[in-house]
Design a protein around this nucleic acid. Structure first.
Lengths: 186, 186
DNA sequence: CAGTTTGTTCAATTAATATTGAACAAACTT
DNA sequence: AAGTTTGTTCAATATTAATTGAACAAACTG
């Protein structure tokens, strides 16, 4: 996009702020709105904020990389939300910054390989929890060893069971990664 | 527990309500508190309310089945929370009602086989979302077919990709179930 | 039957989370 | 250097979700 075109877009946006018109920049095709809605639902299941779903959804269904201010305009969310959401998505590897020659703004593309998305989510969200669980389990073992109640044996059995769960959870993450890593790259 | 013992327990609880004492019934061993905390963290990851983690954790680490009012007293939560949490856990198959002869109250045991827990969670929480996603996808295909913008081909490609994601998601759920179903029953 | 126990429901409250927007800093431009 | 543009941060606000508790119903008990 040229510098002049950007200025023009901004002008239209300011008109919209007056409630008078909607810029072409902001108009989303029906299919785009629907896809964004789909991602909003999907991220809810994963326990992530709506804005993250909106941003990822918009990038997923946008033919071109988009900069922050365009995301803000098209979704009608605040700059703060967009900035935080993009940082989260970037940290997860769900979104990739890309440079557009002649444009100072950092643009973003959605990463659309399920394998990569899952890897990012597993590494960024799941594994940390699994590891903090490992620490908790260590603590549990110690406390169980000190237990003086009449149920020490029962408690120890339960702690063993938790250890088994965790072990199998770790195996599952690997199995999932391996499954998604096989061949077909969509 | 005999009828007389229950009355006595209730009396101690009422004393506690006055701020004067804590009944033996309510005292949780250090290990129990720690396990409950662990489950509270775990259910957060799954997007479930804290109270559900507390209730399941308490039952998991209790040698005997517990009735609603004991759960309320030991966790210090409201009857409403406990009732709703138990219903949720029961629907998921994470908790099993059991009858204690001579006691009118319904008691609950935790189900501790990871396979059963996962099956309940997959069937109760994950599959419904996957299925609603399937419906959304159908809608998406229709909208994509009608698209008049210059990006119809891109949009259709994305919809195909979403279809692939969903298909693989379904396969994953099966793989997870199969993995957890193998032999070792802890 | 009148009273008690047991458990559910749901409107009101409280707590937790996400979002906003204004202040700020860094990187550019003229 | 003074002014833009671009993007971040974080305290205040808004929104959403969980919890409470009181009213209720059903199942028992004497």
């Amino acid at each position: 996009m040229t510098s002049e075109a950007r200025s023009a877009a901004r002008e239209r946006v300011s008109i919209h702020a007056d409630g008078a018109a909607i810029s072409k920049e902001e108009q989303l095709a029906a299919i785009q709105l629907e896809v964004i809605e789909l991602f909003v639902h999907a991220v809810r299941v994963l326990g992530l904020p709506k804005s993250v779903g909106e941003i990822y959804g918009l990038l997923f269904i946008s033919p071109d990389a988009l900069p922050l201010d365009v995301i803000v305009a098209r979704l009608g969310i605040s700059k703060g939300s967009a900035s935080q959401g993009l940082r989260f998505l970037r940290n997860l590897g769900a979104v990739k910054p890309c440079n557009i020659p002649g444009d100072r703004r950092e643009h973003f593309n959605a990463i659309t390989e399920l394998k990569k998305l899952a890897a990012g989510f597993i590494g960024g969200e799941l594994t940390p929890h699994l590891e903090s669980g490992t620490l908790r389990l260590e603590k549990l073992k110690q406390i169980a060893a000190q237990d003086t109640s009449g149920h020490a044996e029962f408690f120890r059995d339960r702690v063993v069971r938790l250890g088994n769960w965790r072990r199998r959870g770790g195996m599952l993450l690997k199995i999932v990664s391996r499954f998604l890593g096989r061949t077909t790259k969509t």
